[in-house]
């Protein structure tokens, strides 16, 4: 969900197949075990997602 609206609905197991940029963006922000120690990416909140 983004700003009170559903942007995408998926089976939890298929989360990596998310198509919507907001869903993909959120997944990108998560740290991973064994991942890099560089600063994590965060979302550039595009206003268009709420429309």
């Amino acid at each position: 969900m983004y700003k009170g609206r559903v942007v995408e609905e998926l089976e939890a197991a298929n989360l990596m197949q998310a198509k919507h940029p907001y869903t993909q963006g959120l997944l990108n922000c998560l740290p991973r075990i064994g991942g890099s120690r560089q600063p994590l990416p965060s979302l550039d909140r595009a206003a268009g997602w709420a429309e």
Partner: peptide, 8 residues
């Protein structure tokens, strides 16, 4: 997740 990333 995004705000978590910023905070970490």
């Amino acid at each position: 997740a995004s705000v978590q990333a910023e905070t970490l």
